[in-house]
Write a protein that binds this DNA or RNA. Structure first.
Lengths: 163, 163
DNA sequence: TTGGAATGTCAACAACGCTGACGTAGTTTC
DNA sequence: GAAACTACGTCAGCGTTGTTGACATTCCAA
């Protein structure tokens, strides 16, 4: 963390506005590639999010997914139903608690996940490469502090051992 | 930019996936405060975007706004109509080219813009403060490289003299 | 056995994207 | 001056994805 004192961090409102715009434009770029892939299958971002988090936590329950995504069960259910019907997601009744449904990606689901993730990672990697290693750490740190505390818990809840 | 050679920039797929999730969760936080304010007035993010960019470029034309926002004129028109009806935006026929409509925020519009912007800047400022000065530069750089080239043009097209 | 949790589903609605078509000024070009 | 193009608005319809509210089912736990 070096010795960055607070006095070094003067940010004008104009600079903050620029950062807000950067966030807006960057998020459009961030979702552009997946959006194109999803559109060919009649899916949207909600499908992508479900696929992403099921891939990250195979066997996760519906309730767990609801907490992470922060949407209503009706909204999530609509998306899950199509993914299950299309054979991308498998829903299995829990063994310990049989009310729960454990969600995993099928082979086809993993294939789509890989396609989406590869495109998105490629853009991330390119941006990181152009920005340099120092920028990468700063980027991650700011993003993390921009989250709501609850969202941040979900973010931190994954395996923390990879950095 | 120091001497960061490419060899220093090894990013595993897992690290990139983490960055993708960070972007997702951070964007939720980024929009959370404005969303709450907008909801009390029956507005959504589309209204926020229109207000933001009209504030940034007072007197901008509809076509200009369309290019920046990247939506259809029907979609933008629906939003602009409500904002004009509600007295937040003023639309004036152009003097040189009378086909054009020049958009500006009214006093009420500026007030809402300030409310939205203040909340969003406060979160940005807090995140930057916790992350430190080095993180700020890295954050901005990565975001900029994540944009589509066209979006980046719009981003850079503002006054570049503020950093 | 009963209360409550987890899940699923139906219905209705809103915000905000989209396409396509059409009209109406106003400008530009030939 | 007519024709073509541009800027804008609007109507109609549709899709994704969020919401609330209500209700049924299944099953754990006290």
């Amino acid at each position: 963390m070096e010795d960055h004192s607070d006095t070094l961090l003067f940010l004008t409102d104009e600079q903050l506005r620029r950062a807000i715009e950067a966030m807006f434009f960057a998020y459009r770029g961030f979702t552009a590639d997946p959006d194109r892939i999803l559109a060919t299958r009649g899916y949207g971002r909600a499908h992508h999010r479900a696929i992403h988090f099921i891939h990250r936590s195979p066997g996760t329950t519906v309730n767990n997914l609801l907490a992470i995504l922060g949407v209503t069960k009706q909204s999530l259910n609509r998306v899950l139903r199509t993914l299950i019907e299309d054979g991308l997601v498998q829903s299995r009744v829990g063994t310990q608690d049989r009310r729960e449904r454990h969600l995993t990606l099928t082979e086809d689901g993993e294939a789509l996940e890989a396609e989406l993730s590869t495109a998105q990672r490629a853009r991330m990697r390119a941006a990181f490469r152009e920005a340099g290693p120092g920028a990468v750490a700063g980027f991650r740190t700011v993003l993390e502090h921009m989250m709501d505390p609850e969202q941040r818990r979900h973010f931190a809840a994954v395996r923390d051992g990879d950095r």
